Computed example of a mutant assay.
Amino acid sequence: MRIGTPKEIKNHEYRVGLTPAGARELTAHGHEVFIETRAGLGIGIDDAAYQRAGATILATAAEVFDRAEMIIKVKEPQPVECAMLKPHHVLFTYLHLAPDPEQTRALLASGCTAIAYETVTDARGGLPLLAPMSEVAGRMSIQAGAHAMEKAAGGNGVLLGGVPGVPAAEVVVIGGGVVGYNAARIAVGMGARVTILDRSLTRLGWLDTVFENRATTLYSTVDAVETSIAKADLVIGAVLVPGAAAPKLVTRAMLGHMKAGTVIVDVAIDQGGCFETSKPTTHQEPTYLVDGIVHYCVANMPGGVARTSTFALTNATMPFAVALADKGYRQALLDDPNLREGLNVHGGKVTYKAVADALGCDYLPPQDALRAA
């Protein structure tokens, strides 16, 4: 198979979809790999490293799309990239389609096969290609939030861990999954007073055991959320419904109960955000104010630590990329039900139910779509 990786073009996105080690792995399996020039420079990898791994360097993204059968990326394709997709292409990347009807329409119009990292599952029901970035984003959410809490950044001027004689900050984490756990872990380590809300009693029990009374766990209700955020200095939105739009758990009215200068970090922004007042921001302009509350809603947060993120992500994606290349996308998807969960768009149809429900599109089950191919 011919596999291509273009340079990411989203604002302040420095990650790359394939490392030299990944290129070497694919070429060792007999596949051709094409890399857009300078694709890896954002994380300190030059073209020569890819060439030593057996990849061919191409001058433009258009050439990569023209030569490749499978496109391996990091972030969702931008409009100019969607325009280069054709029916023979397999796109393997993060998509986050539920809150993005424009991208969905473009992918449907292209006729391509689009496999989303964020909905590929494992045997335990986990999300193995989302988990590495969720770990990064959860940990980053605390350091980003701590910086935004500084008075010069618009926050309330509270030091996350406090000092002797002065209370530490109150941190509220809404959602106790991978993002929430990692956020709480860093916040606890920095000396903050941490409260974690979740609706799974099993997960709350696990978190309570792990943190050994260093964090408070609460069952998540409207009242519990409202009461908790009213005393918070930093609120982390860490809620995920796989493939679907995130539920709006904090309304604009609730902001009126919060202290001026409180910071909210919406890690769920890729799926539309779990705060009613959230809108995507970039690393260039990461925050904005609503009713005196600082909102940090960077949609590609792990891109800020691009080198760590790239290697963590490609470690997870490589086995699936090899399977798609070795078997061809159709056989690989039919053979592996977990990989098949990643199929979001195929042949002009939406093949992931949560996306179809969120956007009001017709839904075609992935197995039916593949059999009709």
Rank of each mutant, 00 (worst) to 15 (best):
G191L: 15
L97H: 00
A114D: 05
T37Y: 05
A372L: 04
T202C: 11
M190I: 10
D266Q: 08
D362I: 11
G154L: 08
A356V: 10
A358K: 05
S309V: 04
S228R: 00
A48R: 15
R330M: 10
V235M: 05
L127A: 09
P337T: 01
F65T: 05
M149R: 09
D357M: 09
A106T: 04
A230H: 00
G4V: 12
A312L: 13
V241C: 09
M258C: 07
H31T: 04
V290L: 06
L85P: 02
T310K: 04
D223E: 15
M318C: 08
A28Y: 07
Y117T: 00
T27K: 02
A131M: 10
R38K: 14
L370W: 01
Y117E: 05
D326W: 07
V179H: 10
L334F: 12
A21E: 12
V355R: 03
L130R: 02
A55R: 04
Q103C: 11
Q331V: 12
S134K: 02
A55T: 07
V136H: 07
G44D: 05
V179L: 10
V158P: 01
K259L: 09
G145P: 03
E150R: 11
Y288V: 03
R214E: 11
R307V: 07
L313A: 08
V210S: 11
K279G: 14
S141G: 13
G189C: 06
L333V: 06
A21T: 10
D335R: 00
F275M: 11
M190Y: 14
Q284V: 14
Y296Q: 12
R15W: 11
V350K: 06
Q143C: 14
I45G: 05
F275G: 02
G237T: 01
I142Q: 02
A114F: 01
I71F: 09
A321R: 05
M318A: 07
V194D: 08
I229S: 07
L370R: 00
M84N: 11
P319Y: 04
I269K: 00
Y50K: 13
F92T: 08
K327W: 10
G40E: 00
L359K: 01
A232Q: 03
T282H: 05
V265I: 14
F65N: 07
C82Q: 14
C82F: 06
L289K: 08
F275Q: 03
Y352D: 14
G328C: 00
A98F: 03
A39T: 11
R15T: 04
P247I: 13
H96F: 15
V350C: 13
D368K: 14
R24Q: 15
G44H: 01
I264T: 14
I71Y: 07
G189S: 11
I35T: 06
I174K: 01
S228W: 01
E25R: 12
R67K: 09
Y329F: 10
A358S: 13
L334E: 10
K353S: 15
T227D: 11
V290K: 03
A169Q: 08
V322A: 07
V263A: 13
G292Q: 04
D357T: 13
A369W: 00
K7T: 13
G189L: 11
V163C: 12
A321G: 06
L201K: 09
P366T: 06
G360N: 03
V322E: 07
L95P: 01
L240M: 02
